[in-house]
Design a protein around this nucleic acid. Structure first.
Lengths: 102, 102
DNA sequence: ACGAACGGTAAGCATAGACTTACGAATACG
DNA sequence: CGTATTCGTAAGTCTATGCTTACCGTTCGT
């Protein structure tokens, strides 16, 4: 979604890959909060995880980012050109799953 | 924001301009809810208002839509190419005012 | 001029979700 | 082995905000 913290995380990871603790240091929120955001972003296919010792390095997934970018582009371009049959119920994207089933 | 009802309104208005009541008929929410969304969208510069008798016809504002589309495009493209200095505090866009001052 | 249609606003409620503290699991290190 | 580091998860709180009902103003029709 359009949460500021979420966007900040994206921006930080755009700069370079980071561990969870590193992200938490640069952001005004606690480390668990960052962890939760990363979980969502991972489920959305926007970031990938890499384990290095006790640390988890997170990295943007170019494919996922490009996919989301294209879906947004499609939606807003259709809004401009006048087409429809989009966003009637499921939302903008198919890339919307939220949680792994517990 | 990324609210489903908000997107549905955008999609409806992309098809053709509509009055408030018309939108409320096609959506699963009440008329005042639509009215509130339209207020936000108007403040965001995404729709324009036209009075026709007792009815208010709403229409997408191509300029505003294009502006938002470009800002999103910029943000996500930077995420892909690796740049930063975006979304550090104010959010993605300057086009973020929420309410007219009371 | 009176009633009806249309729509914006206020007030209140309820749910989503973002955050924090507390705890447990996994790995590195002496 | 025992301790420290790093991180994920659970539980609970709190705020933002999307929706509804109720009310009022404005415009049109007869």
């Amino acid at each position: 979604m359009g949460d500021p913290t979420r966007r900040a995380i994206i921006a930080c990871l755009a700069e370079r890959e980071r561990a969870v603790g590193e992200l938490a240091e640069e952001l005004p929120v606690s480390r668990p909060a960052v962890s939760q955001h990363l979980k969502v972003l991972k489920n959305a296919g926007l970031v990938t995880e890499r384990t290095a010792g006790t640390r988890r390095i997170y990295r943007l997934d170019p494919a996922g980012v490009a996919a989301l970018r294209d879906q947004l582009e499609t939606f807003w371009s259709r809004a401009l050109t006048g087409y429809e049959d989009v966003a009637e119920g499921r939302g903008t994207g198919g890339r919307d799953q939220r949680e792994e089933k517990p």
